[in-house]
Amino acid sequence: MRRVFKYLPLIILALVIPFAYWVNKTEPRPETIRDFAMDTYLEITIYHQPGEAVLEEILNDFKLLESIFNRYDENSVIYNVNKNAFEKPVSIPSIFENLLQESIKLSGYTEGYFNPAIGPLVDLWRPIIKGEEDSVLPDIDLIKKAISLSKTENIIINEPDGQVSFTILGVSLDFGAVVKGYAVDRAFGILRNRGVDRAVINAGGTIGVYGSPPGRNYWRIGIQHPRKDGIIGVLNLPSTTVVSTSGDYERYNIIGGKRYHHLLNPFTGYPAEELVSVTIINKNGLFSDAVSTAVFAMGLEKGMEFLTQKSLSAIIITSDLQIHFTGEAERLFQPEL
């Protein structure tokens, strides 16, 4: 009895250590994949073993979205819709219908400042912003015409048949502003199905952090400084969040001292002025993307009012590099010194 008593602690240890080791085994090391899809750079890191199958699944989903929503690809669904939906209703896959309906809802939510039917305006400005040779600033009449085409009311969704049609010739859908956030949401769904505990999804600057951070209290997401290299600050995020930034520094061209960028105001038809960067912090990627685009177009006063009224978390940077916060953003933000 005495002998057993003496050695019992060691026996218990011998039982507990393999158990604890097994528990610890479930703390996986990160695996990262980097590639291109949806006309942008992707970086996916998951804390899951084995990770390759999940990474491939997410990447393939991104490529699927690209094959549906790339409006410059003649084989894509959206190209076909934009080309033919006025003449006859076009059948669309359920992903397309889903994103279209969510986008129209978000367009209403943002009072039209986010607009999935902004294609005609985008096409008008695209040569300028890309800096193509011989491109000239679009004529005001053309802009007015494009604004009238860029209305979500011109889209008719026939839900039972899964078809979409346009009421006027020239309507054109463009999900460029939200497809990355939508892709992040779908990636989160895959992570959930596969039982992944934590991951970071970077879809061309729209960043989703999933689950709790590994061995620390916060995920740390840097926010690009709008006018120089490096970051303006860091967001400390405790759990699943998507951060989306709209900035005028990404795709732009300077003509006659004026910056023409890709974030268009759907009401004036011109690139939105006043703000240089809007970052939205939300659980939902599609929402973050749509709202950051909308608030950028709204400008400071209207944007702040909108965000405060809807109690959303955002960081707005104006052209004089003043930083404005709404909601929880100030608490999460840590300026870079």
Binding site: I12, V16, F19, A20, Y21, V23, N24, E27, G215
Partner: peptide
Amino acid sequence: ITVNLFLGFDLRGFLSL
């Protein structure tokens, strides 16, 4: 072991053990 039964056995419990 008892404390870890209360708090849940995770990496921290393993470390303290």
